[in-house]
Design a protein around this nucleic acid. Sequence first.
DNA 1: AATTGTAATTGATTAATGTCAAACCACAGA
DNA 2: TCTGTGGTTTGACATTAATCAATTACAATT
Lengths: 232, 232
Amino acid sequence: MRPEEQPVIRSLPLFQQMTEDNFDRLMRGAYVQSFPPQVELITEGDPCDFLHIVVDGEVELVATWCGRETTMGIVRPVSTFILAAAVKDAVCLMSARTLEKTRLVLLPAIDVREVFEIDNGFSRAVVTELAVAYRGVIRNTKNLKLRSSLERLANYLLSQKNLAGGAKSFELVMEKRRLASLLGMTPENLSRAIKALRPYGVKVDGNCIEIVDSSDLERLAKPTHLIDGNGI
Amino acid sequence: MRPEEQPVIRSLPLFQQMTEDNFDRLMRGAYVQSFPPQVELITEGDPCDFLHIVVDGEVELVATWCGRETTMGIVRPVSTFILAAAVKDAVCLMSARTLEKTRLVLLPAIDVREVFEIDNGFSRAVVTELAVAYRGVIRNTKNLKLRSSLERLANYLLSQKNLAGGAKSFELVMEKRRLASLLGMTPENLSRAIKALRPYGVKVDGNCIEIVDSSDLERLAKPTHLIDGNGI
DNA sequence: AATTGTAATTGATTAATGTCAAACCACAGA
DNA sequence: TCTGTGGTTTGACATTAATCAATTACAATT
């Protein structure tokens, strides 16, 4: 592991509250590895052997069924994934693949469970992490069941604008076909949906989005912190 | 609280691992209350003041947006709901309403958080509860994004058949319009979908469902433990 | 500069799903 | 028994979204 990486991991909420001893123990058993793009790190249905920490790069979480595939999320540095499967010693419900060259820290799930059993600060941090994740998925379900694809796109663009600090224009952080899958639609449908937002002041040039007047778009999107909120 | 109720609650996985002292403490602060049908117990967006335990009756979890409404789940005895909001001291992302006369035990969320901070057995039990809940919602998301409404219905019927012990015929455990909402479709669409399953050996008479040959229906439904599993 | 591969777009079409209205049915209460 | 009420079903239709095919755009490579 690079000298700067261990402190970064330590500073994650998930690892902040545990004892120095137990953190060291986790780190001693950790593997660090770099992967090229398009590598399948985890396969849906396989047992979960490692808690994954993305320290650099980008990982896509995908789910499949009967030849169909959908993007469940994108993981960026520095954060973890498949925590639930790791602590429950269960099979993975999603596959994970690198989107670009990616550096991972892999904590053996068996170590994670062992430390989880003895370190109370860690087990409480896991609760927080899971509670936030759970509420995130509930929000996502509401988004899918209550909104049309156009409305989902409109709200996605508004939330991205916020993430970009409210700047009038910003770049899409992923390929459009991936965004389409994340939003639960086809690439063709996304392409048309983007056009359909033009009357609401959305201008698109390649990956660059410009929202002329947010309140215009909000009239359609009707964002709410009960769906579009971030952990609050 | 009735004499038989406290032991039942104690035997829930969530409360099994905590100390007797802390359990007593939670129970001393508990309210027990009965509600008639169609009472709104929790309103989406409100702060979460109590961890709810259904000891008798039936509660529906619903989410709304812009006048639209969808059923997110049904809670039956004996189990809890809004655990995540209670431990995080956050607003509720779903509303809850009684479907029939319902008896609830209400644990003040502030007590739950207090005990959570001091009782390590409890905090670990919360992890298990949340991890299972999280994985359940992930499964649900896959169900929604990867399957058509007909496929969701087919899989629902197969899982209900299993819950009924594999009996050839069984009763629907909820009104059809509620089932429709749970599956993410309209009542009209459900009605037609049921008919569309007739070629696959599904016979319906009111609330009674008969599946002539499961393997017939499975050819369409293609159930998998990665979507239709129960906590495994 | 030409070539290749992939993503993105566009148009035409089909399929899936929702909406609206009416009819039907079961059941509780008068 | 009658009668309202609300859930269910059905049909006609509208809307939404997926599919298929073709084209364009673009970036990487030769």
